[in-house]
């Protein structure tokens, strides 16, 4: 398997070692749980004070209804296996801020004591208020380096769709990138034609932080993304069928073991 030297993929500890560890992966060193005014912010998952990033990122479906009793996101979270750490990116643009905040609090409550890391799309304020682990920004979001004290206790990720954007983003200081669409997928067509594995490799070689491949990822092509230097994979559509979710995660978990 191709692993870019100096890339997180070659240095990340075993996932089983996701615990309070002294040796943090370099990009996460800055993570601390106090904001600049010294105000204590609750560490979202107490035993993951300094963690390495999971290799699977589940993007929420975008179909959450305001304060619905049946939330696909919460059902998906309940199915995440304890042994396999996952990142969950909550991306529910249709919700107003109050409903988004309540959904984040519910998700946080359900991941208490697990290794699941919760990220909220776009809104660092709601992510911080709900005690999530991070914020996931788009190219159209507030520049990550401007978030200041608000992001002190948050990991920051950003979606990028070009090499240029990837390079600029890294300079601005984020913890990981999501790059794509690598393959064709309906949900990612608004972000342009598939970039392919070649462009994924170029981006992974150009930056020193973890890159997650997104766009049409499935168990058949996930390995090829890792071979090109991706740290992990991100997917929305693959995980919406909760009946198949446990088996899929098992398969991907085997594949993504370093």
């Amino acid at each position: 398997m191709y692993v870019k030297s100096g890339c997180q993929a070659s240095e990340a500890p075993e996932r089983a070692a996701v615990r309070p560890v002294a040796a943090a992966s370099p990009s996460l060193k800055s993570m601390n749980m106090k904001n600049s005014s010294g105000q204590e912010r609750r560490a979202p998952s107490p035993e993951i004070t300094v963690a390495t990033l999971p290799r699977i990122c589940m993007v929420s479906s975008g179909s959450e209804q305001k304060d619905s009793a049946d939330s696909l996101l919460l059902r998906q979270i309940a199915l995440l296996p304890p042994a396999l750490p996952c990142m969950v990116q909550i991306r529910e643009k249709q919700l107003d801020a109050a409903a988004m905040f309540r959904l984040c609090l519910a998700a946080r409550q359900r991941t208490e004591g697990t290794r699941t890391l919760l990220f909220l799309n776009e809104r660092a304020d709601i992510a911080a208020a709900a005690g999530l682990d991070g914020v996931h920004l788009q190219e159209s979001s507030c520049p990550p380096e401007k978030l200041g004290s608000l992001a002190d206790g948050l990991l920051k990720g950003r979606s990028v769709h070009s090499l240029e954007s990837a390079r600029q983003t890294v300079q601005g200081g984020v913890d990981y990138l999501v790059f794509g669409p690598v393959f064709d997928t309906p949900s990612k067509r608004p972000y342009g034609a598939p970039q392919g594995l070649g462009q994924l490799r170029t981006v992974c070689r150009a930056v020193s932080i973890p890159v997650f491949a997104i766009g049409g990822i499935n168990p058949d092509n996930a390995a090829s993304c890792l071979e090109e230097g991706a740290y992990g994979i991100a997917t929305l559509s693959l995980f919406t069928d909760t009946r198949k979710l446990p088996e899929l995660l098992e398969t991907l978990g085997q594949m993504l073991r370093p």
Binding site: A97, R123, A124, D125, I126, A129, C142, P143, K146, L147, G148, S149, L150
Partner: peptide, 10 residues
């Protein structure tokens, strides 16, 4: 309006 994150950033 609404965006505490933008208010702090700006």
């Amino acid at each position: 309006n609404d965006r505490v994150d933008i208010a702090i950033a700006a």
